[in-house]
Design a protein around this nucleic acid. Structure first.
Lengths: 128, 128
DNA sequence: CAGCATCCTCGAGGATACTG
DNA sequence: CAGTATCCTCGAGGATGCTG
């Protein structure tokens, strides 16, 4: 099972399904994580985040933040205010992730129309 | 690894949950899509891909390839050989996606140990 | 060889109610 | 305000068998 490293020497993209990239993808590919990371350009309160993510429930947002905190991407800080407050912010590790992600966003913006056109053409080809 | 890009500290990352990046993430974040893309450094036959993805079923691989084809990232070509064959390859659009993805892979490789350490520490703190 | 047709499992995500 | 605690839905993914 020790797979050899014969994969994609041409392209030079070191992705393997059992590799570390899989782990990161699993971390980010849920419904809200990336939106949360993008919103944490400054420290934000729990309900502030919740209001920003239209439709998220408390339970799911809590789970999302816990997972990001667990991986060291987000820091959680309890404020000893009158009603207790909790502040979430990006860690340096979390901030460093924004840069590679921005490349993906840029690609998306540049190719979205192309993708949509392909999808539309495919659907018409299959249906009609 | 401190990039001199000054984008990370500011909002400069144009991600929104209702934006196009969401669409791309939904496309790539399934269990096999990225592995398939990485494996298509050259045209590959269906069963060739299936053998490479350890554990994937025919049904799921078919669906994965259909989705990638629908978005224009992968091309499907039927070979009129003795037993019919099908060849899958990256489109230029699909190839262009590998570059931004490689940034994500590089980040992952550079920070995997850090992430794993955070997760371990978190689990012990919470008492798992 | 490369599928499609069924059936089934399992967990992410949501609805709702309660609380320190 | 920022959470838990239950319960439920829904679809991705898997198992298995059949076929042009």
């Amino acid at each position: 099972m020790a797979t050899t490293l014969e994969t994609s020497a041409t392209v030079g993209i070191g992705y393997r399904s059992d590799g570390p990239s899989r782990l990161i993808l699993d971390q980010l590919a849920d419904k809200w994580s990336m939106t949360v990371l993008a919103f944490l350009d400054r420290p934000r309160r729990f309900n502030e985040i919740k209001r920003h993510l239209d439709g998220v429930t408390q339970r799911v947002l809590t789970h999302t933040l816990r997972r990001l905190e667990r991986s060291g991407l987000v820091a959680r800080r309890v404020l000893t205010t009158s009603p207790i407050g909790v502040e979430y912010s990006l860690t340096p590790l979390g901030e460093s992730l924004l840069e590679p992600l921005s490349h993906l966003y840029a690609w998306t913006d540049a190719n979205l129309d192309d993708i949509r056109a392909h999808q539309l053409a495919y659907d018409q080809r299959v249906r009609g």
